[in-house]
């Protein structure tokens, strides 16, 4: 027990200063109830902030500007950039509604189906099937893998995400692999090669860095 002569109170603590006026206290005795558990070390737990959201918003704007510029300057005859816009919106839905939320499976699947259908109708309307596989798919895939990697780097709950993200990156790169193997990409194969390489590197990286988390999550959720 300590005594603060400025506040004229007794302080139940081991510390030698007053918790309300921060002046030095006098020692009365070593008795202490310990009503509260004190922080043991400097917490690294930073307040959850809008940083992630802002970052994604910024990246979205950058990608959109870049793709519209490329579209207008390089391939003005075919307007494929609206699809990228739609794709970016889709990524937002994917992250906010499907990956990061605790909604019911039904709602998640339902919204996914609706959004994918909309994208397909949109693609059909623009008749850009020539652009879909060589440009849009690999760009989307790269954007998704970049986003997932950023989440893993920044998020404090990354341990829970490793398995799901590994599966997504794997499936995306398999897509590119299929397009290349069956020559569906037309003349322009570069973006799909990049998507394939980045996707597989991501899978490798996630498994390498997240091995312990993946093992733990597999044990916890599937009792493997």
């Amino acid at each position: 027990m300590k005594k603060c002569r400025y506040c004229n109170v007794e302080v139940d603590s081991d510390k030698n200063f007053c918790p309300i006026c921060f002046n030095r206290t006098d020692n009365l005795d070593d008795r202490s109830t310990g009503l509260y558990t004190l922080r043991k070390h400097n917490e690294t737990k930073i307040k959850s902030s809008w940083f992630l959201t802002k970052l994604f918003f910024f990246l979205t704007i950058c990608t959109l500007t870049a793709s519209v510029m490329v579209n207008v300057l390089v391939t003005p005859k075919s307007m494929w950039s609206p699809l990228v816009v739609f794709g970016e919106l889709y990524i937002w839905v994917l992250i906010a509604h499907t990956i990061m939320s605790k909604r019911s499976l039904f709602e998640k699947v339902f919204l996914q189906v609706v959004v994918i259908l909309l994208i397909l109708i949109f693609a059909e309307k623009l008749s850009i099937s020539d652009w879909l596989i060589p440009y849009v798919y690999p760009s989307m895939s790269l954007a998704v893998v970049t986003t997932l990697s950023l989440i893993l780097i920044i998020s404090s709950k990354r341990g829970e995400y490793f398995i799901g993200f590994t599966v997504i990156a794997f499936l995306l790169s398999i897509g590119s692999l299929v397009f290349i193997l069956f020559s569906l990409t037309g003349e322009f194969k570069l973006l799909n090669y990049i998507s394939l390489a980045v996707g597989f590197s991501a899978v490798f990286g996630y498994v390498l860095f997240g091995f312990d988390s993946i093992k733990y999550e597999l044990g916890k959720k599937w009792h493997l």
Binding site: M1, C4, C7, N8, V9, E10, V11, D12, S13, K15, F17, C18, P19, I20, C21, T33, L35, Y36, T37, L38, R39, K40, H41, N42
Partner: peptide, 27 residues
Amino acid sequence: LEKTFIRFLTAKGLKIEVSSNFWESQP
């Protein structure tokens, strides 16, 4: 706020004992 509240009561002659989780100070 806490300081004003508690000092008001001690000034009236009440004997008060204080505990805190010292959230503001470095551990």
